[in-house]
Deep mutational scan, measured.
Amino acid sequence: EEWMVEKALMVRTGLGARQIESYRQGAWIEGVHFKRVSPSGESTLRGTTWYNYPEINKFIR
């Protein structure tokens, strides 16, 4: 699984929702560690946020 939603990321990493938000707003790079995608497939600020687990795992190492 490369891309996953927040709940799956929480299960895989043990991070809480606030921790994920903090990383997203600070250290993680949009387009690398996470992306927002609307149902139409376009990038957007209001779409579902998807997280790239392999890239996040590399960051944590």
Rank of each mutant, 00 (worst) to 15 (best):
A8S: 08
L15D: 00
G41I: 08
A8I: 11
I56S: 01
S43D: 13
L45Y: 06
S40Q: 11
S38R: 09
T44H: 12
Q25C: 08
E42K: 06
L45V: 12
R46G: 15
F59T: 04
R24I: 13
T13W: 02
W50M: 13
G47L: 10
M4Q: 03
T13S: 05
P39E: 14
M4W: 03
P39F: 11
T13G: 02
A8Y: 08
E21A: 13
V37P: 06
G47S: 12
S43L: 09
G14S: 05
S22D: 12
M4I: 15
P54Q: 10
P54N: 10
P39S: 12
W50Q: 05
V5N: 15
G31H: 05
L9N: 00
P39G: 12
W50L: 15
G31M: 04
I56H: 00
I60A: 03
K35P: 01
K7F: 09
L15V: 02
E42G: 11
N52Q: 02
N57S: 14
G31K: 03
F34C: 02
E30S: 05
S40D: 14
P39A: 13
I60E: 03
S43Y: 05
S22F: 15
E21R: 12
M4K: 00
R46M: 14
Y23S: 03
E42Y: 06
T49M: 14
Q25A: 10
P54W: 09
N52W: 03
E55Q: 07
V37R: 06
L9P: 00
E21I: 07
A27W: 09
Q19C: 09
T44I: 09
E30P: 05
A17C: 07
W28P: 00
I60H: 03
S38F: 14
R24S: 07
E30R: 04
E21S: 08
M10G: 04
M4G: 02
R12G: 03
H33M: 03
G26K: 10
W50K: 04
Y53N: 02
Y51W: 03
G16R: 11
V37E: 13
R61I: 14
E21Q: 10
R36I: 15
W28R: 01
T44E: 14
G14E: 03
N57C: 15
W3L: 01
A27H: 09
E30T: 03
R36T: 15
G26L: 11
E1A: 10
V32P: 01
E42A: 09
A17M: 09
T13Y: 03
L9K: 01
L15A: 00
G14N: 05
A27T: 08
A27G: 09
R12E: 05
T44W: 09
T44V: 09
G31R: 03
G41D: 10
E2T: 10
A8Q: 13
R46S: 15
K35A: 06
W28G: 00
A27P: 11
K58C: 06
F59N: 03
W28I: 00
N57P: 00
E1V: 09
M10K: 05
T49F: 15
R18C: 12
G47R: 07
T13R: 01
S22G: 08
G47T: 13
G26F: 13
E2Q: 08
K35T: 08
L15R: 00
K7V: 09
Y51F: 05
Q19N: 04
E30W: 04
K58P: 02
I20L: 07
A8P: 04
Q19V: 06
P54I: 13
E6W: 05
V37C: 12
G16D: 15
R18M: 11
I56P: 01
R36Q: 14
E6F: 09
S40M: 11
R61L: 14
E2F: 08
I20A: 01
H33C: 02
E6M: 15
G31Q: 04
T48W: 06
T13F: 05
M10L: 05
Y51I: 01
I20C: 02
S22R: 12
T13Q: 02
N57R: 13
V11D: 13
F59G: 03
G14A: 04
E55H: 04
E55I: 06
T13H: 02
M10V: 06
I29A: 05
E42P: 09
E6V: 11
R46T: 14
R46E: 15
I56M: 00
I56T: 00
F59E: 03
A27Y: 11
S40Y: 10
W28N: 01
I60W: 04
S22W: 14
G26W: 12
K58L: 08
L15Q: 00
E1I: 08
T44A: 12
P39L: 13
E6Q: 09
A8D: 15
K58N: 09
A8W: 10
G31L: 04
P54D: 11
H33L: 02
E21K: 11
G26S: 14
Q25N: 14
E30K: 04
R18G: 12
E30D: 06
K35R: 09
G16S: 15
R12H: 09
E6Y: 07
V5R: 13
V37T: 10
E55S: 05
N57V: 15
G16T: 15
R12N: 06
T13C: 05
R36K: 12
T48G: 08
T49R: 04
R61V: 13
R24Q: 08
S40H: 11
N52G: 00
G16N: 15
Q19P: 02
W3H: 01
Y23N: 03
E1S: 10
G26H: 14
E55G: 02
Y51K: 01
E55Y: 03
E55K: 05
K58R: 09
E30F: 05
F59Q: 04
E21C: 08
T44K: 10
K7D: 14
Y53I: 05
V37K: 06
Y51A: 00
G26V: 08
R46L: 14
N57T: 14
I56L: 02
G16I: 09
W28A: 00
V5Q: 15
T44D: 15
V37N: 07
R61D: 08
W50E: 05
G26N: 14
W3G: 01
V32Q: 06
L9I: 08
E6P: 04
H33W: 02
E21T: 06
A27Q: 11
I56N: 00
T49A: 05
L15W: 07
H33N: 01
G14Q: 05
E42V: 09
L45N: 13
E1L: 07
E55N: 06
L9Q: 00
G26A: 09
Y23M: 08
E2G: 08
P54T: 15
Y23A: 04
E42W: 05
Y51C: 01
V11T: 09
E6T: 06
S38G: 13
Y53C: 04
G47A: 13
